[in-house]
Each structure stands twice: as C-alpha cells, then as structure tokens.
C-alpha cells in the first residue's frame, strides 16, 4: 500500500472544501464514508490517489452530480430522506400490526379493526353532525342542534350518518386525490370534534360549581390581601379593627404576615397585617396610637387602587371610595363594604 492515511485525509479535506457551498448536513452526509472508501481504493490499486481518481475538485464535482446534491438542492435531498423515513415507518407499522394482533385474538390488529369499520362510520356521522351544528352557531353539546331545535338536529344527524356510511362503503375504491380528500377531511373532522368535545366536557364539569359561584362575594375584594388605615394627618393606623353596620367584623385578606423565615405567625384580626408593607408611609413609631374616632380612610391593597388625586399620601379630603368607620366603636351610619 503506497497511500498513507495523511494523503487520504488531505484528499478528503480538499473534496469537502470543494463542496463547501452545500449545506453542512448534506455535505457531511455525502462525505461521511469517504475516508473509508478511499482507503479501500488505495488498498486495491497502486499509485497516488490523485493518479487513480483525478484531482479532488474533479472528484467532488462528479460526486456532487452523482449524488444529485446541487447547491440549492437541500430540499430535494431532505425530501428523499423524508421518503425513506416514511418507508421505514410503514414497515415498522406493519410489523407492529402483526405483533400486536395476538393480544386481540386476531392474526393482526387490522384484522381486528376491519369488522369495526361500520361502527366507525356511525361515529363519524355523529361527529360530523356535531361539527356542523357548532359551525352553524350552536353551542357544543352531545346532540346536534340547528337553531336550538333538537328535531332539526336529529334530522341532520340522520343525514350525516347516512352520508358517512355511504362514503365508508365507497371509499375503499377511491384513488388519488379523492382518497386524499377523504383522509384530510377525516383528520380535520377528528381535530374539530376533539376540540368540541373538550369544550362540552369542561362545561359539564364546571356546571356543578355554578350555584356556588353565584353567591360568592364581590370579586373586587377577592384580590385584597391587607388593609391600611390612615388618619387625618396621613399617618398609618396600626391595630385597626373594621366592623360593618351590624357589628360584625369585616375580614379581608389573609390574617397573617409571613416573614422570610417560613414560620407563620398566629393570625391577628387587626389591620394592617403587615405594617411594613404599607403603600404610603411607614408605621407610626409611637408605641400605641389609639385610632381616632373620626372617620378615616380605608385603602385596600392587593389590586393596588391608587388613591384619587395625585397626592402621594391619602388625606380625608381625597378619600377613596370604600369608606368605613375606623375605631373601636362601630356606628350604624357609615357605608360599609358588605
């Protein structure tokens, strides 16, 4: 053997260089085995590779032509690979068909499915009626309706079922684009009806809680986590209690203030729960500020309602809409939030 590995590597490099305009994947695909192949050639003949095979650039041009890989031919090359993958998938599917057949007591799965085809035709007719009724503006349900009429829906159902059975009995003889049209139509039908059935299922499973939702509290206050009360001077009132006109404590938010330690302190039913998170001013440093009996301003947080006006600190003159009395003694007069 007169050809060295180095000579082969150089030759391969020059061939790859001449194919540099091809997409890298195609070029790698083409030259993947080239070193081994050239080693075979070198082992069989005397003389240098260039003597045997010509210049690497000419070799590359011939290779390119033979492999059908023109510079812009990536898609053709890929589509061939796609065809190959499809052929392989088909073979595997057929193997699986016969392998899984015994599980169903038949030589193959397709033998098991063949007698079930009329059942599929009926199902397809029903799905088609559902999809038609949804497309015509009906609400998704298990029975098709036309303009809310169940009778018209049943007529439609009978029509689509008959059409589906008719199509099923004839589709075996269809070829070419007709066959493709049936396949594409069936796929679209399955997709649509799956979406429709998911909607039906969601409605069926949420209806149970419908009555519960109706008596739920005003949603505006669902988002409230804490309540901050400010007095006339804009100072934060701590340990405030809220009551409605019947003297029932108003409970908003979650009566605890989780600190970073992960330890949840016991619940306290005084506002604010977390004085450190006051939106406008730090808590008053003085030890105990008994809430003045004068009406103050309640500023719920959580849904972040900005106080009316542009003043950074709320005052009595710019009171926000939900007003309530602040103080130990409830009065019967003020507006309440419940």
């Amino acid at each position: 053997m007169t050809v060295t590995g180095q000579e082969i590597a150089d030759y391969v490099d020059r061939v790859r260089g001449a194919l540099a305009d091809l997409p890298p994947a195609v070029r790698d695909e083409l030259t993947e085995d080239l070193p081994e192949h050239l080693a075979e050639v070198a082992a069989e003949t005397d003389g240098t590779l260039v003597d045997r095979l010509g210049a690497p650039e000419a070799y590359a041009a011939e290779l390119r032509a033979a492999a059908g890989a023109e510079a812009g031919a990536r898609s053709a090359f890929l589509s061939r690979r796609l065809d190959a993958a499809r052929a392989r998938a088909g073979t595997q599917l057929r193997a699986l068909d016969t392998q899984l057949g015994p599980l169903l007591g038949q030589p193959s799965v397709s033998e098991f499915l063949r007698p079930l085809r009329p059942a599929w035709w009926l199902l397809r007719g029903w799905l088609a009626a559902l999809v038609i009724s949804v497309i015509l503006g009906g609400a998704p349900g298990l029975l098709p309706r036309l303009d809310g009429s169940v009778f018209a829906g049943l007529v439609l159902l009978a029509g689509t079922v008959l059409a589906s059975v008719w199509l099923g009995r004839r589709s075996a003889g269809l070829r070419g684009w007709r066959r493709q049209a049936v396949q594409i139509g069936t796929a679209a039908l399955l997709l649509f009806s799956f979406a429709a059935l998911v909607t039906v299922d969601q409605r069926a499973s949420t209806d149970r809680f419908g009555s519960y939702q109706e008596i739920s509290t005003d949603r505006r206050y669902d988002m409230i986590q804490d309540v901050f009360v400010y007095d006339e001077q804009g100072r934060l009132v701590t340990n405030a209690r809220l009551f409605d006109q019947n003297g029932v404590p108003i409970r908003l938010g979650w009566p605890t203030c989780p600190d970073g330690t992960g330890v949840v302190p016991p619940p306290r039913y005084v506002y604010p729960y977390c004085p450190e998170q006051a939106p406008f001013a730090p808590p008053v440093p003085s030890p105990a500020t008994p809430a003045p009996p004068a009406p103050g301003t309640v500023t719920p947080t959580g849904s972040a309602p900005a106080p009316s006006g542009s003043a950074p600190a709320p005052s009595a003159s710019t009171s926000a809409s939900p007003t309530a009395t602040v103080g130990p003694a409830p009065s019967a007069e003020p507006t309440t939030t419940r």
Partner: peptide, 30 residues
Amino acid sequence: DASVYGTLRRLFAAGLLTTYVVPSEAGPHR
C-alpha cells in the same frame, strides 16, 4: 469512482440499501 460512491450514498439515503462493516486483518475495514 466518485459517481459510484455518490450513487451509493444517495441510494443509502433514500433507504434502498443497508450497510455493514467487515473488519479486515490485512487492509482497511470494508
């Protein structure tokens, strides 16, 4: 040679051929 090699690569990519390597003591693997 390049035509044959290119054709083999293409037929292999198209799924018409399978390959296997046979080790050789004297020369390169084939």
